[in-house]
Design a protein around this nucleic acid. Structure first.
Lengths: 336, 336
DNA sequence: TTGAAAGCGATACCAG
DNA sequence: CTGGTATCGCTTTCAA
């Protein structure tokens, strides 16, 4: 059996209460007692049982992170940073991956509830939503929307400024002289897709260019869509001179098609993307992209969440952090 | 406040004990009572507080997954599959990422202990080890080594058969007529590196080829090493005709160098790798690689762990699952 | 078949 | 400064 506070108390010749106070540095304990307790605890390899702790109506010291998948540098950084930061505050991270499926999402929300997580950092699944349960949960614990906005009136959120990002990279392409810039985008049911589309259109409008509907291909954030849309675009009467791939997956499809059709970047076609991933740097040529400040994102999400946890407020005014994007210029776009 | 079993009992006009039995389907409960309890629970949106549950000396219903990072298709699949399978058994997954740092690893092991996880699925950090704590923990809970073997006499393990994998792909290259096959490998302190090296040498020996030391570049599993080693190899008097990149990161370095030096795959040089990732398929040309059965791996790890948890045995005979690898032939290697 | 009551491990209040 | 004790939510005997 694992050592309990009783064992420590016995070994130190003190009461549980004193041991508890000593270990938590709450209340008054003499130097000598503290030393005795610490030694006893060390000898027994004592680690407080956190379930018993949490039972006292206090927080579970667990945070739920519910995300679509964990495949990119982005995901890795988010998780990595969050685990570190949370651990520093003695929280654990319970990870759930819903894979864009609403049914799994629902299950995981329930699981997180049962586990009495102190809060949830949440990226909605693309399709379907469990807003009923989300609303219900939100009454008991803070939920922070990460990257995808859906409950603007109710929940806090930490978001990437996708409008700016899209505008920024579109402007860059316009600046290079491109006039026929195609956008291949995923689902527009959530803010990510909507905003990137919006930013793109904004930049075009600002440049006094008409929005050509045939240059905009909205489908899913998948390789398949990227591949097919790219083929389509190349088959148009007037092919675009630059492609904006709405995500890494879409980009993969785009690249696949270009390779298949023996089209060279950037001489034949300029290509730019959203989000940065390791392989974008080593691609030949390296791909220009607009990236979000992942670490900051994780930082604010955790920060905000811990704040909400420490100062419980039944009906707080939702806060929203919008994180800047940065254009990473590499070699996949040329001037025309 | 969230509903407790008391509230349910009150609402159903029964005692806590009865409600508990009804909800857990343990002991005798009449049909009618069961229905009343279930209705009351549903009305209140009751979810058992699992900390209180775990307090009874029972399992915490939490599993710790301690891994180096989460960046590849491999990691994603492992986590994805594990969360699903664990959730089916009503377990949660607590994820920790040590990032190959022994100090973080230590912290996370302690955290997992404190959280009283029911078991740990563990991939050691490359450098340094915390075997003392691991040994200590192993006395209280099952730990399964995933992918990297270190405590063969003590812990269970689920491993990829890297010897076979390396042998397989080396043979493939030999079959294509290659005689100067270079291996760029990462740290050989853990089994992954050791076994891949071993399998490579095995295949060469079987083919009656001498091991040329200058063709073997052992360093770290990093892009930098891949990049530098590739440069080195090309500067040798007799350059290799095929390259075996010991990991995805190493492969990235290799590809970077080849691009920089304008060397074309596979006409100038054949390239093969270990582990599959999405971008390998869309590379031009698509990269041949030897892959492991990730889903099976996750399956066995969870299976074994749950078995160990349900049948606690202070000193079980360690079991080891060795998972087969499969050669994925694409277009990056040519016959000479 | 049901209810009362004793813990599980830690915290926190109240006396001393 | 320290020790007893009620308490958290639930499971689990033991009686009824």
């Amino acid at each position: 059996m694992v050592a309990t506070i009783k064992d420590v108390a016995k070994r130190a010749g003190l009461s549980q209460a004193t041991v508890s106070r000593a270990l938590n540095k709450s209340g008054y304990v003499s130097q000598e007692t503290l030393a005795r307790v610490e030694q006893a605890a060390a000898e027994l390899g004592y680690q407080p049982n956190w379930m018993a702790r949490g039972l006292h109506g206090k927080s579970s010291n667990l945070i739920g992170l519910l995300v679509p998948e964990v495949m990119s540098l982005y995901d890795n950084s988010v998780i990595q940073y969050m685990t570190e930061k949370l651990h520093a505050h003695n929280y654990g991270l319970m990870l759930c991956i819903h894979n864009e499926r609403a049914d799994l999402d629902l299950k995981y929300l329930q699981l997180l509830h049962e586990k009495r997580v102190a809060g949830i950092i949440y990226t909605h699944p693309l399709n379907g939503d469990n807003s009923e349960l989300v609303h219900q949960l939100a009454e008991h614990l803070p939920i922070i929307e990460l990257n995808r906005r859906r409950e603007a009136g109710l929940l806090d959120a930490v978001l990437a400024d996708n409008i700016q990002g899209a505008r920024q990279i579109t402007r860059y392409l316009l600046g290079l002289g491109h006039r026929r810039i195609a956008l291949i985008m995923g689902e527009d049911e959530l803010t990510t897709g909507q905003n990137r589309l919006h930013g793109y259109q904004l930049a075009l409008t600002e440049a006094g260019l008409p929005a050509d509907r045939r240059l905009i291909r909205i489908g899913s954030f998948s390789r398949q869509h990227g591949e097919a849309a790219m083929h389509d675009l190349l088959d148009e009467d007037v092919a675009p001179t630059a492609i904006l791939a709405g995500s890494n997956r879409i980009l993969m499809g785009v690249l696949k098609t270009l390779t298949a059709r023996n089209i060279h970047i950037p001489v034949d076609l300029s290509v730019a993307a959203f989000n940065d991933t390791e392989w974008l740097q080593i691609w030949n040529p390296p791909i220009t992209t607009v990236d979000i400040a992942v670490e900051e994102m994780a930082h604010w999400a955790v920060d905000l969440l811990l704040k909400r946890i420490s100062v419980p407020d039944v009906k707080p005014t939702p806060r929203e952090y919008l994180l800047g994007t940065s254009l990473i210029i590499r070699e996949s776009c040329r001037a025309v």
